[in-house]
């Protein structure tokens, strides 16, 4: 942690970066919250631990940072995937971001939990980027991750085995709790549209009411707009007050992208985006 503070301080003092986006301790020590350090004093407050769940890449697309100059960001491997994807989509200029990469030993799934094999976030279970793919400075050391069963994957297999009708019933049940707060969208680093399709009123494509129609169209379109883009940080699911298993939808799309196009989002600056490109030999056996 001292390394991190010293590095942030150094970057802020010598003018390499204008701000450092990082984490500070929140109400209780087992919670952290995002923090924007602007001075060397601010940098003294920064922390990094197993409770740093937030994906800070979310803040990179904010208007106020677009013209700030170089922005420093404390990032775990999964956050870096989001940054890579943002660079690929031309939302962030590669030269305008200074990544303080953190070797990550897993994070909790929800704020306010103790870190254990029970509470380690699902995304950490099969993580392949514990050391970030892209960084300017790398801090921290790797330790062994606690292991547990991937319940999410089990549920996914259960769903895949169901008939379409049963799956609809499952989702209708889950979506029924949706209150249309759009926290899933706001918490997503890749939902950066100035004006979301859900907010467009002329015509209103996605009904804002939280009934079967509105819930399905919103959740389907949200998942689709993230198809081949979602980097699997699961912030949507964590932000959801109704605890809808949104990551299942994203994960499914990720699996389809992998199966059909051998594509994984955010894994490198040399692979073009999935839906921004095409291949002449894409599968078309379903087209008459």
């Amino acid at each position: 942690m001292n390394e991190l503070r010293a590095k942030a301080k150094e970057l802020l003092t010598n003018g390499t970066v204008k701000v450092v986006i990082g984490y500070i301790e929140s109400t209780t020590p087992d919670r952290t919250k995002p923090f924007i350090a602007r001075t060397a004093e601010d940098a003294e407050k920064l922390v990094f631990n197993k409770y740093c769940v937030n994906n800070l890449a979310l803040y990179l697309t904010r208007k106020e940072f677009r013209r700030t100059g170089v922005v420093g960001i404390v990032a775990k491997g999964c956050d870096v995937k989001a940054i890579v994807q943002l660079i690929q989509e031309n939302q962030v200029n590669k030269d305008d971001v200074y990544i303080i990469g953190m070797n990550c030993n897993g994070v909790v799934s929800e704020l306010g939990q103790d870190f254990s094999a029970e509470t380690i976030a699902t995304k950490c279970l099969n993580c392949s980027v514990r050391t970030p793919l892209l960084y300017h400075t790398l801090l921290g050391t790797l330790e062994d991750l606690p292991k547990r069963e991937d319940k999410n994957f089990v549920l996914m297999q259960k769903l895949d085995a169901m008939s379409a009708g049963e799956r609809w019933d499952f989702w209708e049940d889950e979506f029924e709790r949706c209150v249309k707060c759009y926290a899933c969208r706001q918490a997503c680093p890749l939902c950066y549209c100035e004006r979301c399709i859900a907010d467009k009123t002329v015509p209103r494509w996605i009904e804002s009411s939280a009934h079967t129609r509105g819930n399905f169209s919103w959740n389907i379109i949200r998942a689709f707009h993230l198809a081949g883009r979602c980097i699997g940080c699961n912030e949507c699911e964590r932000a959801c007050p109704a605890e809808i298993p949104l990551s299942l939808l994203n994960r499914k799309m990720g699996m389809v992208a992998k199966k059909e196009f051998d594509f994984v989002a955010g894994m490198g600056l040399d692979t073009p985006t999935l839906v921004g490109t095409y291949n002449l030999n894409d599968n078309e056996d379903f087209i008459k």
Binding site: K33, P34, F35, I36, L58, Y59, V179, C181, Y182, A183, R185, Q186, A187, T201, R204, E207, S208, S209, A239, P241
Partner: peptide, 23 residues
């Protein structure tokens, strides 16, 4: 740092703002 998700208002027992739309 606020992301404007509105979770606070929707979870709140007394927040009472609403919007009117035609469907």
């Amino acid at each position: 740092i606020c992301v404007g998700c509105g979770q606070c208002a929707f979870a709140c027992p007394v927040c009472h703002c609403f919007d009117i739309v035609d469907e």
